[in-house]
């Protein structure tokens, strides 16, 4: 009896978590043209419409480019910072670490407004560069976290052993440290990509009349239209996320990646 209750509980929790996705999934295949639960004959027309929606296609292109560049930029900044924090002693180390983690605790609305006020006068609103800078700021804490985790769990004596065997600092990093922390880097970069791709609030602030990411485009679309095309797009985005997770899982084991 208890076992049955236990099972029911688990099913209920999963239903609660998955309900929004199930609903979206259902609506997206429905031929009704209202964005609501309806029981019309199934149809693929909303998916077909997606392909001709220039706004969404352009938004996806912008999001893909900015998310990719963001993922690379955060690695280029995050890895050296993490290395410095994990392996060296220097003044204001705590302050440096706090500075790079702090975007996590500042509300997005505040960040968005601040960035808008800074970007406006220098013409960065609505540009690739502006979006990348903003997204780098909010995703770098994740990369630093995962990289630091990998660095602190890695055996420091491996690096020492390499040096004793004749490797200089750069070779040690390239041949020993980097391969050992690589799963952590991938986890951080994937997280940065997904967060950047998904980010709406800050992007909305700094969009101006220029480049617009997919979430902003979707937000704007919803203001004027309410048909299941947006649901179809959501399903596509969910599938992309699932594919990314599966690929990372296959390539190196997600659990290992997430644990650094």
């Amino acid at each position: 009896m208890l076992k049955v209750l236990h099972r029911a509980m688990i099913v209920a929790i999963y239903l609660f978590l998955l309900a929004p996705i199930i609903v979206v999934f259902f609506i997206s295949f429905n031929s009704s043209n209202r964005l609501a639960l309806a029981f019309e004959p199934p149809s693929l027309q909303w998916y077909a419409n997606l392909l001709s929606n220039q706004g969404f296609i352009e938004g996806a292109r912008v999001s893909f480019i900015t998310a990719s560049i963001t993922a690379i930029v955060v690695l280029l900044i995050g890895v050296p910072v993490s290395l410095a924090v994990a392996r060296y002693r220097f003044k204001f180390k705590g302050a440096v670490e706090a500075l790079f983690i702090s975007p996590l605790v500042v509300p997005s609305v505040v960040l968005g407004l601040g960035l808008l006020l800074v970007f406006q006068p220098i013409g960065l609103t609505g540009t690739f560069a502006g979006i990348v800078i903003a997204h780098t700021g909010i995703t770098i804490p994740y990369v630093i976290r995962t990289t630091l985790m990998s660095l602190t769990t890695a055996d420091v004596s491996c690096e020492e052993a390499a040096k004793v065997l004749g490797a200089n600092s750069w070779t040690t990093f390239r041949r020993i440290t980097l391969p050992i922390i690589f799963p952590g880097l991938i986890a951080g970069a994937v997280m940065a990509f997904i967060i950047s791709f998904d980010e709406a609030v800050i992007s909305l602030f700094i969009a101006g009349s220029g480049r617009v990411t997919l979430p902003v485009e979707m937000f704007r679309y919803l203001q004027y239209r309410s048909d299941p095309e947006i649901a179809a797009l959501s399903v596509v985005l969910i599938l992309i996320s699932v594919i990314i997770v599966l690929v990372v899982e296959r390539a190196m084991g997600l659990r290992k990646v997430m644990n650094g």
Binding site: S157, E160, A162, V164, G166, P179
Partner: peptide
């Protein structure tokens, strides 16, 4: 250190896992 030409065995062995 990398120019001293020594050999060292660590307590944890420090084998390169990859």
């Amino acid at each position: 250190v990398h120019k001293r030409g020594m050999g060292m065995v660590f307590q944890s062995y420090a084998l390169f896992p990859h």
